[in-house]
Computed example of a mutant assay.
Amino acid sequence: MRTHELVLRWIEKQLSDGHLKIGGRLPAERALAEQLEVSRTSVREAIRILEAMGVVRAGVGSGKDAGTVVIAEPATALGSALRLHVATQHLPVADIVETRVLLESWAVSRAKADAPELAEAARLVDEMDASTAVDDFLALDVAFHLALAEAAGNAVVSTIMGSLREAIEGYAAALTANLPDWDSTAHRLRSEHRAILAAVNDGDGGRAATLVAAHIEGYYREAGLEQAGLGRSPAEPKPCRT
């Protein structure tokens, strides 16, 4: 095992045993190196990896922001990793969209009608009604869908949803150039958002799931996902559907 992996294992155990919690600080670099009998270079490498994973934030200097603090930003880290793999074309955007449909359908079918996130979703829909800029609309759209996912109360699904959205957000924006009439599309998306939210508020999870699947697939179909070269490669077989 490489020495920086020893540091990672030690920090993982401290977290799982409850000795380290969100907001807590790791020991100073020198102290941790001496405690684990590894080099300070190994400690720095481990901390860089944990930063990339969204587990810690390393501060410099002195004061309340100094030191390495335990945080929780898994969606950002997963989104970054997915984005890189999408860029290699190993993970086709079309497959990520399909996965998003599965997760969002599950989430809205189980969203709790009294979840506070639904009030936030309603506010975001109202903001979308007043939004004229494409980038602003898409940012609000992302927040709306994440609010719906969080209303299901499953932290893992919410995290994965957030990472999937981050991984393809740039592609979703780029595809707007393929739309024949953005204003018409935006009007339709607003109506669909309200219908999805109404179904969730009415406790009709089945209808909400059907609506959100049609909503997501409809946008990418209209924008020409595969025609834009963002789907599976021509040599890659499509999954069999029964």
Rank of each mutant, 00 (worst) to 15 (best):
M1S: 14
R2L: 14
V7S: 03
V7I: 09
E12C: 04
K13H: 13
K13L: 13
D17M: 09
K21I: 03
G23P: 01
L26W: 04
P27R: 05
L32S: 11
A33P: 11
R40I: 14
I49S: 09
M53V: 06
G54C: 00
V56I: 08
R57M: 03
T68W: 04
E73H: 12
L78C: 05
S80T: 14
L82A: 09
H85W: 10
A87R: 05
T88K: 04
L91N: 08
P92C: 06
A94I: 07
D95F: 02
I96T: 00
R100D: 11
L103H: 00
S105G: 15
R110I: 06
A111W: 03
E117H: 14
R123N: 08
V125D: 08
E127W: 10
M128G: 15
M128I: 14
M128N: 05
T132C: 02
A133L: 05
A139S: 05
L140D: 10
D141W: 03
F144Y: 14
L146H: 07
A147Q: 08
L148R: 10
A149L: 00
A152G: 07
N154Y: 04
V157S: 04
V157K: 11
T159S: 08
G162P: 00
S163M: 09
S163A: 00
R165E: 14
Y171W: 04
A172Q: 13
A172H: 10
L175N: 11
H187T: 15
S191D: 15
S191Y: 11
S191K: 14
R194N: 11
I196N: 00
L197W: 06
D202N: 09
G205K: 02
V212W: 04
A214S: 11
E217I: 12
Y219G: 07
E222C: 01
Q227H: 14
E236F: 10
P237T: 04
T242H: 11
